[in-house]
Design a protein around this nucleic acid. Sequence first.
DNA 1: GCTTGACCTCAAGTTGACTTCAAGTCGCAA
DNA 2: TTGCGACTTGAAGTCAACTTGAGGTCAAGC
Lengths: 141, 141
Amino acid sequence: MKFLDIGEVAAATGIQPSALRHYEKVGLISSVSRHGLRRQFPPEVLMQLQLVAMGKSAGFSLEEIAAMFGRNGMPEVPRAALHARADDLDRQIHELEALRDTLRHVADCPAPTHLECPTFRRLMDVAGRRRKASRQARGRG
Amino acid sequence: MKFLDIGEVAAATGIQPSALRHYEKVGLISSVSRHGLRRQFPPEVLMQLQLVAMGKSAGFSLEEIAAMFGRNGMPEVPRAALHARADDLDRQIHELEALRDTLRHVADCPAPTHLECPTFRRLMDVAGRRRKASRQARGRG
DNA sequence: GCTTGACCTCAAGTTGACTTCAAGTCGCAA
DNA sequence: TTGCGACTTGAAGTCAACTTGAGGTCAAGC
C-alpha cells in the first residue's frame, strides 16, 4: 500500500505541514506508521481533510469537527446528535441567507437611511428571531 | 433624544460591555457623547449590533464587517463590492448545505465505510469544487 | 458631604488555530 | 561516508476577539 509523507499530503491539500501536525496532535487525523521519523499517512486522510475543511468553513471548531467525524472520518456520535448538528446548520444557513439578502438590499436600495426602510427592518427581524431560537437550542451567541 | 448607557445596550443585546468597548475601539460602533465618563450610545446602535451579529455568524471578521457597514451602519463600500460579498455568501451557503447533507447522510447511511459510498463521495466532491472556486475568488482557504 | 455602583482606562491574560524557530534525525544519492 | 534536504521535536510566538483586573472617576441618592 502506498502511504503519504506529510509533504505529499500538504501538496495535495494545500494545507501546511505544521497544520497537519497540529491536526494530528488534536486527534483530527492520524498517521499509520513512521518511515524513520516521518509520519506516513494513509490515502484516506485526504478525504478526512476534505471533511475537516467543510467543517471549518461551516464555522465549527476543530474539537467539534473531531466530535463529528472522529479520527478515522467515521462519525463517533449518535445519529440524533448528527441530526441536531444538521439542524444547527440549517439555522445558520437561514441566517446567512438573511445576511446575503441584506447585503443585496443595501447595495440596491436608494433610501437615504436603511433604518427607515421596511424591507431592511424585516430582514433584520428575521435574523434577530433566528438568533434567539438558536441561542435557546445550543447556548451560543 | 434618549441615549443609551453601555449597560443598557448590553442588556438589550446580550453583548458584554467589554465587547461593546472593543467594538467601539475597532470602529464598528461609536458613542455620540459622554455623560461624565460614560459613553452615550444612540438608539441606532442596536440595529448596527444586529448587523454585526449577522456578519459574525456569517464568519466575517470584525474588520470585514466594519468594511461592509462602516461605523454608522451604512455601507461605505461600492455596490459591486457588496454584491461580490453576497456572491461569496452564496458560495458559503452552498458549502454549508453540502455539509448539512453530508451530516444527515452519515447519520443515516448504513454503509460500513462512507469512503466507498457514492452519495458520500459526490457530496464531498461538491464541497471540494466549491472551495476551489471560492479560493480563486478571494484568496481564502 | 459621602457612599455606592456603574462606569472609566490601560495592561495583561485567555483561547483557538496555527506558525515559527532552534536543534536534532534520518534516508538516499554521490 | 558524507552531505543534502525533507522531515522530526518542543517551546515559543502570533493573531483575532475578547475578558479580566487594578486602580480611578463620576452622578445620584441618602
